[in-house]
Amino acid sequence: MARSARFWPVVLLGAAVCALAACERVAPIPQAPSETVFTTAHRTIGDAFNEFFGRRAEPVQPIEFPHDIHIEKGMTCTDSCHEAAVDGPVAGLPSVAMCMTCHEAIATDRPRIKTIAEAYAAKGLDLPWQRVYGFSQSAHVKFNHAPHIRAEVDCATCHGDVAKGTVARRTVDHTMGFCVGCHREKNAPNDCMTCHF
């Protein structure tokens, strides 16, 4: 008796909620993201979950590019590979033609150079480099490299010691606290509209 007394109100309440939900459905439901449309929605709940907790897959690069060797040879980050950072918002990733300007002649016998020469350059393909850093769409951050380079912020401040490693990995967490801390120190603008627009 006690069990059914609790049971029926719950069932009735459930039915009422369902009925209300059905009424609400009169409004057209936004279409689920598909391959033919672009939307800001996450594709799956898992994607939303990962973004919320800041979990990102490590990028897999086409070749294990050794940053350290190139820096040892006297190149700098903004020399030719990421030169767009000097006067633009994005740093850019080098094209295979950029690699081949030097590697037509230099170290042509190394396996990685052979890979890019044969599998990419010879076929007219470009290297499918993967971005290592970058803000998620919902962060609404519009970052511009150029003013930071003019302010003489070292690349390593935000990108870690890439010069000492081979493949670039995410070693610095680009949180808002990280950005604002430096902006305060250097008396850079701190208004929301500086970055979020």
């Binding site: 936004p30 279409q31 993201p33 391959e35 033919t36 449309v37 672009f38 939307t39 800001t40 929605a41 918002p89 769409q137 609404h140 519009k142 979020h196 627009f197």
Partner: peptide, 19 residues
């Protein structure tokens, strides 16, 4: 969530957030 039929998403302005 706003929706753009592909390839219209390629004309989105990269300097402005997509809300």
């Amino acid at each position: 969530n706003p929706v753009w039929e592909k390839p219209l998403h390629l004309q989105l302005n990269p300097d402005v957030s997509v809300r």
